[in-house]
Design a protein around this nucleic acid. Structure first.
Length: 216
DNA sequence: ACATTAAGTGATT
DNA sequence: AATCACTTAATGT
């Protein structure tokens, strides 16, 4: 984790153009810290107190949840221009985090102390909107994930997993082992291998060792 | 050449 | 669909 001293405000303008109020932009620049994480680095772990909220500038972040039997399940990827709505609630209720976040790619973000999230809700309309939309987007996504789990559509989960991962890494070529995918989706390695092979036959992608190449 | 790790296969439940 | 036992293939030392 490295702290960068460069100017934050232009980054806010560029990646969060919806924050229309100049005062809000200034406030973010003033109170936020610019942090960078190398790919693979854990940003926040289970059971830690979160007192800051991330605004992703560059790269992407993987958000995981720990299951009952020590399993891990990928919840979603955060990309540039997004934030983690779980952390909102987590901070406000002063609870330990039930999630772990890992830099999926080399990632830069603005870390913002939680108290401003609350404060600005009443002060800035575009901030309030942003927070609400973040909730909405995540909830919709989670509901989708939930019913594909419930209906055992592992093939669909796999495909959308790959698409999201490709998007997160800004590349159609994904460097990952079948085993890693299996962990993320909480499935068996064999099941993933077999489904990948089906998808390859169907022309959706091509496979190599440690690599999945997604086709348009 | 050998060991290790990733991926493929078939049988069983 | 999970697990097991095993094979085959790729990669590192």
């Amino acid at each position: 984790m490295t702290l960068e001293t460069s100017n934050i405000q232009p980054l806010v303008k560029q990646h969060f153009p919806q924050f229309s109020e100049p005062l809000l932009q200034e406030a973010i620049a003033e109170h936020g810290k610019l942090l960078s994480f190398p790919s693979g680095q854990i940003i926040m772990d289970y059971d830690s107190f979160i007192k800051e909220v991330p605004l992703v500038i560059k790269g992407s972040i993987k958000v995981m949840r720990e299951g009952q039997e020590g399993n891990e399940l990928l919840l979603y990827f955060l990309n540039a221009g997004e934030t983690c709505s779980v952390s909102f609630t987590c901070c406000m209720m002063d609870k330990r985090s039930s999630i772990r976040t890992i830099a999926e790619d080399d990632t830069t973000l603005i870390s913002l102390p939680i108290k401003y999230v609350d404060l600005w809700m009443n002060q800035f309309k575009s901030w309030r909107n942003f927070v609400m939309l973040s909730y909405d987007a995540r909830i919709m996504e989670l509901v989708q994930t939930l019913d594909s789990v419930a209906f055992h559509k592992l093939d669909q989960r796999l495909l959308s997993y790959l698409q999201k991962k490709a998007q997160a890494n800004q590349s159609h070529t994904i460097h990952v082992t079948h085993q890693e995918i299996a962990y993320d989706l909480n499935a068996s390695r064999e099941a993933i291998s077999r489904l990948l092979k089906q998808l390859e036959k169907a022309g959706h992608l091509s496979l190599e060792r440690n690599k999945v190449e997604l086709r348009a």
